[in-house]
Design a protein around this nucleic acid. Sequence first.
DNA 1: CCCGAGTTGTATAACGATGTAAAATCTGCC
DNA 2: GGCAGATTTTACATCGTTATACAACTCGGG
Lengths: 337, 337
Amino acid sequence: MGISLKDVAQRAGVSIKTVSNVVNGYRHVTPETRQRVQRVIDELGYRPNLTARHLRKGRTGMIALAVPELGNPYFAELADAVIEHAAGLDYIVLLDHTGGRRDQEVLFAQGFRARVIDGLILSPIELENEDLLARGSDAPLVLLGERQYDAPYDHIAIDNVAAARTAAAHLVEIGRRRIAFIGARHGRARATAHQRLRGWREVMSETGRPAGEDLVAATDGYTREDGAQAMARLLDSGIRPDAVFCYNDLIAVGAMRTLAERGLRVPDDVALVGFDDIEEGRYAATTLTTVAPHKRAIARAATDALLERLAGEGEIAPRRIQPGFALVTRESTVGRP
Amino acid sequence: MGISLKDVAQRAGVSIKTVSNVVNGYRHVTPETRQRVQRVIDELGYRPNLTARHLRKGRTGMIALAVPELGNPYFAELADAVIEHAAGLDYIVLLDHTGGRRDQEVLFAQGFRARVIDGLILSPIELENEDLLARGSDAPLVLLGERQYDAPYDHIAIDNVAAARTAAAHLVEIGRRRIAFIGARHGRARATAHQRLRGWREVMSETGRPAGEDLVAATDGYTREDGAQAMARLLDSGIRPDAVFCYNDLIAVGAMRTLAERGLRVPDDVALVGFDDIEEGRYAATTLTTVAPHKRAIARAATDALLERLAGEGEIAPRRIQPGFALVTRESTVGRP
DNA sequence: CCCGAGTTGTATAACGATGTAAAATCTGCC
DNA sequence: GGCAGATTTTACATCGTTATACAACTCGGG
């Protein structure tokens, strides 16, 4: 098939290893030898066979990034950032999606593709702590996102309670009183949404706002459709919130759509805050106020943490890294200037 | 590191090759031998080392999909579909983005990662015909998307002229007279946008609508931002179209945003048609009429064409495959029911 | 002129799998 | 029992690379 070290070696009249040395920039090679070999390399257009290199080295130079959905712009944008950053460090990123289903997440954590990748960045939704503890694979794993686990793995996530508090506080600040929450998750104490819900609850109670269960809408997933349906249910049940804090921007977009259908104005009748700062929110007919996690910082932290573990011989204690976030106020809360 | 055939062979008291035979389902193995080996495999949790297998076989079992931007939902959704379909055929998909820059596209076409992947599905934007003809790599290549080339590669694309005609005809049908086009591309006869522009021109002239250059807005890229700016330029130049056909949904979303800012109503003042049928358009405050290419069919056709070439010994003549499309009418042209 | 230290280059053995060809074993039948 | 013919199993080479260990060469100093 391709041109191998052997071909180059033969043509240049040196041993295979010498060519390898030139390719790898090994020090002890005479300038003339190096030049001669290099010329042949260029002539033949030699390119190292990564498969063979990886077999020999026991590393593949690939890491996987498994997110719930690529269709969710937040993850697409995050993936972009990870790919970019990893490429700069000579790592290839294999992108995968779990559909947010536990069985898929377990599969990845267990080491699906273990022999193809050196390590994994996983953004779980349904994964349980026990799944992590029962992990068979010993490939480095970095967890991404809001869920909390008691397992010895690096974990990158912004402070979700604080972020949710910021969002809720903003709604209080602009004078809203009946503030709903969309995107809760039934019966999962560790679930992603839990912390954002907690931040909301704290602010509600601190500022004397109602925080009853009737103001909390659970969803199956985190899509626009889920948001639209939840908003509709909320309104149908007779609750008339004057603001909604949504688990993420997609849900907020869905909620906004339902409000438009019902003839309710944003923010005049109902103010909206989302989470993620996806580009879509910046171009909605009513632009979306949102909590913006520092995606680039998250991507960098996750990649660096993983590669550090790949490189590091000694054991490193599992770390918890909290990148920053910022509240971006737009029309869905403060109206058009 | 891991468990190899050798370990299993030793433990089971057979040769390495026999274990390999069991793993690969080779026929001539005694049921008892097979069972004994299988038990040891399960016991030790053996999993084949794909890197080694690939080295030996000369194939990696991976294909790459290179799209302009993962942040563009159309490509994210398409990628989802390709990954899904390829997984069913035991192929792993490596996702990449070119940024729509010619140098990047050339890099991929030339065989960047050639030794890592068996074949490539490329969705080019700026790539020129000469780049393809000068291609060094001999790895199978399938082209995706609207650009047309005279090069011997499979090409998957819907009939863009026909699709554009459908969209334009729809705007005519609802009685619009000054129909603008946003998303043209300066000075590139082969450019992606060219065919959609042509379809628009044809319908305009056939129905006696103006089709002057003042109604055509060029953009640098295909983002929401590009759409917003182009719409603003159009309005600022004194043109007051009563409809706009946008190169894609993202541009349409941007245009819609500008219209909202200027206090113009959709579709009453200006009707809008996009292209791609991204989910975002279904949840905009005013839902977006759009041309919906059959993404799943495209993904399947591209993957199948590539894998067929990978499997096929004999030469196959380059094919041009045209998946279907459909016009989806929503509020941005027909208003709310 | 020889010796040790340092530099440069090579032969060979892995990495973990599969393909080939030959060896070992099992049939059935005379 | 022995032999042809089929079946089952094995030993060994191989894919393209890097690591190891050693051979060859250079150089300065005694």
